[in-house]
Structures are given as structure tokens and as C-alpha cells.
């Protein structure tokens, strides 16, 4: 019985090894696919703007549940409501993930200023 178990373990190990190697298969192809996917993501901005929008309608039927067969509980769906009845404001909220205390972030915009590096052929007048 012990032998059997050890055999199985060996089998598993073998499988694992194979599995470990399997991810290496077709790396190039998968990289190419990922690249293409990214390429597609870029022009999708037009689709995002003009594509068929999933209408954020509040579905009347779904959020009504019967209570004792007589009354209906109306629960407004918060997430969907945000779209149609949200605050009408033109402000673009900043990305909270960016840390403007870090040198890295500050460096990423350095050339937007006249004090930054200039392209060839351009010069501060």
C-alpha cells in the first residue's frame, strides 16, 4: 500500500513538473495575443463613447418584493441610480491613486514646463 502511495506521489510530482513546464508553451503566441488585445483596447474609446450603452434603467419589477402578499417593498438600487440621477457636475475628480509627494510622479510631468527638456528643433525664444 505504501508503495502505491509513493507511486501516486511520484505521478503527481511528474504532473506538477509537466504543469510547471506547460506555462512555457506558446509563450510567444500568448504574448502576441495579449498585444493584440491591448491594441484593440486603444480604439475602444470610440466604442466606449458611442457604442451601445447599457441603459442604466431602474428595473421596476426586480426591486419590488411582496410583503405578506399585500404590500410591496421598494428598494431603490443605489448603483444603477448613480447614473441617471447623480449630481450634475462638470468637475473631473482626480485619480486618487497618484501620489504627488513622490519624486517619480513629479518627474513624469517635468517636460510639461519650460524648465524641462526641449525637443530638438524647438527652443525657448
Amino acid at each position: 500500500l505504501e508503495k502505491q502511495e509513493s507511486d501516486e506521489e511520484e505521478d503527481e510530482e511528474e504532473e506538477e513538473e509537466q504543469g510547471a513546464l506547460r506555462w512555457k508553451e506558446g509563450l510567444q503566441q500568448r504574448a502576441a495575443e495579449a498585444f493584440l488585445r491591448q491594441q484593440e483596447a486603444a480604439p475602444n474609446l470610440r466604442k466606449l463613447v458611442y457604442g451601445s450603452v447599457v441603459e442604466a434603467k431602474e428595473e421596476e419589477e426586480e426591486d419590488e418584493e411582496e410583503l405578506g402578499g399585500l404590500f410591496r417593498v421598494s428598494r431603490p438600487q443605489k448603483s444603477k441610480k448613480v447614473q441617471t440621477n447623480a449630481l450634475d457636475c462638470s468637475r473631473f475628480q482626480p485619480d486618487a491613486g497618484r501620489d504627488w509627494d513622490g519624486e517619480e510622479m513629479l518627474d513624469s510631468i517635468r517636460d510639461c514646463f519650460v524648465t524641462g527638456k526641449w525637443e530638438e528643433g524647438q527652443d525657448a525664444e
Binding site: A42, P43, V49, D107, S108, I109, D111, C112, K117
Partner: peptide, 14 residues
């Protein structure tokens, strides 16, 4: 017409 312009590798312009 909406075209996305990605910044170049060595560009530090946001």
C-alpha cells in the same frame, strides 16, 4: 473622431 495618443517611452509629459 477620437484618437488616443500614448506618450513616448522617454517623454515626461504626463
Amino acid at each position: 473622431k477620437i484618437e488616443v495618443q500614448k506618450p513616448l517611452e522617454d517623454e515626461r509629459k504626463g
